[in-house]
Design a protein around this nucleic acid. Structure first.
Length: 166
DNA sequence: TCTCGAATAT
DNA sequence: TATATTCGAG
């Protein structure tokens, strides 16, 4: 079947990505439960091959703190429960989520990777165009700096899969 | 009117 | 530093 080969290729791509920490300078925060639920149950992104086992989340706390506090109650003048409930918690771009993002970008090609298209490809519940756009901005900065610094290895690696040949 | 992306704020 | 929001341009 083709599915097997495709799956194999996907696994290899992810393995390469997982071995290359560059854009993965992402926080090891836990994924927003909403987003986690939206990921396919059999998604490999839910259990990415890690080279270095993540530090065990020490404080079991209440078990409800999936994401860091919504927003640093800036000046403390507006941290009422209601206002916090209205505000969406900061989205943590976990490696899993970022992998989806990169996959989508590679699928479209960096030049045609617009937030709306990426959003569709990622198909993640709760994700918005604004969030993707913000992340895309950062991602482009990263790619740009890589090119400028002439880090051929890491730089090319990230722009290479633009051609999803098989 | 919508989307994009840079700049700016938190 | 990472993510969210704003704003002008196309």
């Amino acid at each position: 079947m083709e599915g097997d080969q495709r799956e194999e290729a996907e696994r290899k791509r992810f393995a390469r990505w997982a071995e290359q920490p560059p854009p993965a300078e992402l926080p090891q925060r836990l994924i927003n439960p909403d987003l986690a639920l939206s990921l396919p149950p059999n998604s490999r992104y839910l259990a990415p091959p890690r080279r270095t086992p993540p530090p065990p989340p020490p404080p079991p706390s209440s078990g409800l703190e999936y994401f860091a506090a919504p927003f640093p109650s800036s000046s403390g003048d507006d941290d009422s429960p209601t206002s916090q409930a209205l505000k969406q918690p900061r989205l943590a771009w976990t490696p899993e989520l970022h992998a989806r993002f990169v996959d989508a970008v590679n699928e479209l090609g960096i030049e045609k990777a617009f937030p709306t298209r990426i959003l569709k490809l990622m198909n993640v519940d709760g994700l918005t165009r604004e969030k993707v756009a913000s992340h895309l901005q950062k991602y482009r900065q990263y790619l740009g700096s890589k090119e400028q610094h002439g880090a051929p290895d890491a730089g090319q690696r990230r722009s290479e899969p633009l051609s999803l040949e098989h």
